[in-house]
Simulated scan of single mutants.
Amino acid sequence: MTPEHAALIDGEPLPRERVDSFLEAPLRGAGNGATSHDAPAPARRRTEAPSAARQRRRWATQVVVTDELARRACADRGLKPPPEVSPAHMLTIAETDVADMGSIVAAALAHSPATRTLLAALESEQTVPETSVRDYYDRNRDRFLTPDALRRGVDPFDEPAAGDTLPYDEVREGIAHELRKAAGRKAFFGWLDQARAGVTYAHGHEHPGDPSHPDHEHRH
């Protein structure tokens, strides 16, 4: 018998229809198979192996669960996400987001205003010490060579001339922004791991990497 819910979140059912709706929506962008489809869902299904369809449903369940958890976290924090977008206007998933965050979280960010709102809030809460910014600059001089120095093939770690690297004050704000972004993502994953502890999945909606089902793959 097919369950009416995809998961229980702290004992409350997450309707299976929300996963079905997500599976019907085109998801634009790159990924690892779960995210790399632009064709309408029925066209995809005609050529999809049963095991791939099962895995895609499990993957989609993770995206929808992440959305629901983010909605609840935003409500708890008094954050108001922007309105939902229609499937036709869903954000594109960037290759770098898939590589850095995994396809589940990258798809949740494309699909879910609440997830984007929560991540932005966590990023804004991060404090980056000046010593960390300076240390990053000192350890990554190759990233701050001037265009002229790059053309001349200057070795950034072999005492380059003062004019061969961009001044610290000129790049400090950009470094701080990147470090704050990285810290926010780390905080987001910490929150997500904790929030998922209250989730119980219905049969057929387990995590795609769960070794308890025969089609499992370690895929994020």
Rank of each mutant, 00 (worst) to 15 (best):
Q62V: 00
F189R: 01
R134A: 14
D193S: 08
D20M: 03
P50Q: 05
L179Q: 09
G190T: 08
L91M: 08
D10R: 15
T96W: 02
R151K: 10
D76P: 05
G31M: 04
P87R: 08
P3E: 03
R18S: 10
S103E: 11
R196G: 03
L119A: 06
R18W: 09
P81K: 00
I93Q: 08
A94W: 07
A88H: 10
A7E: 10
T146N: 06
L8K: 02
R141Q: 14
T66F: 00
H5E: 13
A43L: 15
S21N: 08
N140P: 08
V63D: 00
D148Y: 02
D10E: 14
V64D: 00
S21E: 15
P129Q: 14
A149L: 06
G102L: 06
G184I: 10
D10A: 15
H203F: 14
T96H: 07
G31S: 05
T35L: 08
D210P: 12
A53T: 03
L192N: 10
D100C: 13
A110E: 00
F22S: 05
R219T: 15
F22N: 03
G33A: 05
A182L: 08
A73V: 01
M101S: 14
E95D: 11
A49V: 01
A34W: 07
P113W: 01
P214K: 05
P15V: 13
L150T: 08
E178T: 11
E95H: 09
D76G: 13
E48N: 03
I104S: 01
L145W: 06
A162W: 01
R46V: 12
L166C: 02
F144S: 12
V171F: 02
E217F: 04
E217R: 15
P87Y: 06
R18Y: 09
E17R: 06
G31I: 04
A107N: 02
E68Y: 00
P167K: 02
R141T: 05
L69H: 11
A52F: 03
A187S: 14
K181P: 00
S86V: 02
D10V: 04
S132Q: 13
R45A: 13
P211N: 09
F22Y: 07
Q62E: 15
P13I: 10
H220N: 14
D164Y: 06
V63P: 00
R77V: 08
S36R: 07
P42C: 07
T35S: 03
V199F: 04
A110W: 01
C74H: 09
D142G: 15
M101E: 11
E84D: 11
R180V: 03
